[in-house]
C-alpha cells in the first residue's frame, strides 16, 4: 500500500507500542538469565527462599508463589462462576428495565473501582470477618477435612485472597457473559418458547448455547485474577507455603514481586529470580488471555451462523 501522511505518522505510533511490548519481553528474559543459569528450571519447581549476603548460599525456588497464583485464581473463578451466570440471567431475563440499568451500572462501578480500595477493605474488613465467622467455624467443626485443617490465626490466607479476587473479577466475567447472553439472536429465544419451554427451561437451553462465551469469560477472569497485585498482597499473608490448606497464608507471583522487589538489590540473585517470576507471570498471562480471546472470537463467529 502507498505511504501517505496518515500512515507515516500512525505507523510510528504503532511501532512504539510494539517496541514497548517487545522491550518488556527482552527486559524480563535478559534480567532473568542469571537466575536460570544458577538454578535452572528449579527456580520454578522448588519451594525454597534463602536470602543470604553470601551469593553462594543463596537459593530460590518460587514454586509456592506459582502455586498460590493458580490456587487463589481457581478459588476466585469457582465463586465467580455461579455469581456471574446468575447475574447475567437475572439482568437479561428477569429484571425490569429500570432495575436492569441500575444493576449493570453498579456492576460496572465495581469493575472499575481502584484495586487498592478492595485491598484496604479486604485487609481490614473482609479478612477479620472471614476469620471469625467462616474459617473458625469450619476449623472447629470440619478440620478433619485436610483443606480446612490449618488453624486460622491471622485470617490472611489463600481463601481470603481467593474470595477478594472473586469479588473483584465477578463484574468483569459478568459483563462478558451478559453481553453474550444478550447477543443470542431473538429467533432462538422464540424457538425455545414455541416448543413449550418454561422460562427456566428456555434459559437452560440458551445458556448451553453461550457455553463458549462463558468459558472465555472465566478464562479472562482467571487472567485478571492472576495478574492482580496490591489487593492480594494485602490479604494473602505473604508466606511461602505450598499447600492446599485454605486458611494457610501464601504468596502469589505478583504479590511476591510487589513484596520483595524493594529490597532485592541487596542480594545478588534475588532480582534475577524475581525477573524469572515476572517471566512466568508474563507467559501465564499471555497464554491465558490468548486462549480466552480465541474462545470469544470463535463464539462471535458462531453467533453470526
Amino acid at each position: 500500500m502507498r505511504m501517505d501522511g496518515f500512515k507515516a505518522i500512525a505507523i510510528v505510533a504503532v511501532l512504539v507500542v510494539f517496541a514497548v511490548f517487545a522491550g518488556m519481553l527482552v527486559i524480563y528474559f535478559t534480567n532473568a538469565v542469571p537466575a536460570f543459569h544458577r538454578f535452572g528450571i528449579d527456580v520454578y519447581l522448588k519451594n525454597i527462599w534463602n536470602a543470604a549476603e553470601e551469593p553462594s548460599r543463596e537459593a530460590y525456588g518460587i514454586a509456592a508463589a506459582i502455586w498460590g497464583s493458580f490456587y487463589t485464581s481457581l478459588i476466585a473463578v469457582l465463586i465467580v462462576l455461579p455469581l456471574s451466570i446468575s447475574y447475567s440471567i437475572f439482568v437479561v431475563d428477569y429484571a425490569p428495565k429500570r432495575l436492569k440499568n441500575v444493576i449493570i451500572i453498579l456492576s460496572d462501578v465495581m469493575g472499575g473501582l481502584p484495586t487498592i480500595i478492595y485491598g484496604i477493605w479486604g485487609a481490614f474488613v473482609l479478612v477479620p470477618l472471614l476469620r471469625d465467622y467462616v474459617m473458625q467455624f469450619l476449623y472447629d467443626h470440619l478440620s478433619f477435612i485436610p483443606v480446612f485443617s490449618y488453624p486460622p490465626i491471622t485470617g490472611y490466607s489463600y481463601l481470603s485472597a481467593g474470595i477478594l479476587l472473586a469479588i473483584m473479577v465477578t463484574p468483569f466475567a459478568s459483563a462478558i457473559i451478559r453481553e453474550a447472553y444478550e447477543m443470542i439472536p431473538y429467533t432462538y429465544r422464540e424457538a425455545a418458547y414455541a416448543l413449550g419451554a418454561t422460562k427456566y427451561e428456555a434459559t437452560k437451553l440458551l445458556i448451553g448455547y453461550i457455553k463458549p462465551a462463558i468459558l472465555s469469560g472465566f478464562i479472562l477472569a482467571f487472567g485478571r485474577a492472576i495478574g492482580e497485585t496490591v489487593a492480594v498482597s494485602l490479604v494473602i499473608g505473604n508466606t511461602f507455603n505450598l499447600t492446599w490448606k485454605l486458611f494457610a497464608p501464601g504468596y502469589t507471583i505478583s504479590s511476591l514481586i510487589a513484596n520483595q522487589f524493594g529490597n532485592a538489590f541487596i542480594y545478588e540473585y534475588m532480582t534475577p529470580v524475581l525477573y524469572a517470576a515476572g517471566v512466568a507471570l508474563f507467559i501465564i498471562g499471555l497464554g491465558i488471555n490468548i486462549i480466552g480471546l480465541r474462545f470469544i472470537r470463535r463464539w462471535e463467529e458462531n453467533v453470526k451462523l
Binding site: G227, L281, L293
Partner: peptide, 28 residues
C-alpha cells in the same frame, strides 16, 4: 497484517498484569 496484530496486541495489553509494566519501567 500490522493492523490485525495491532488489534490483538491492544487486547493482550489491556489484560496484562500491571505490576509487570511497573517493573519494566523501573528497569529502563
Amino acid at each position: 497484517t500490522v493492523g490485525r496484530w495491532t488489534k490483538m496486541l491492544l487486547q493482550i495489553m489491556i489484560e496484562f498484569p500491571t505490576i509487570l509494566v511497573g517493573v519494566f519501567v523501573m528497569q529502563v
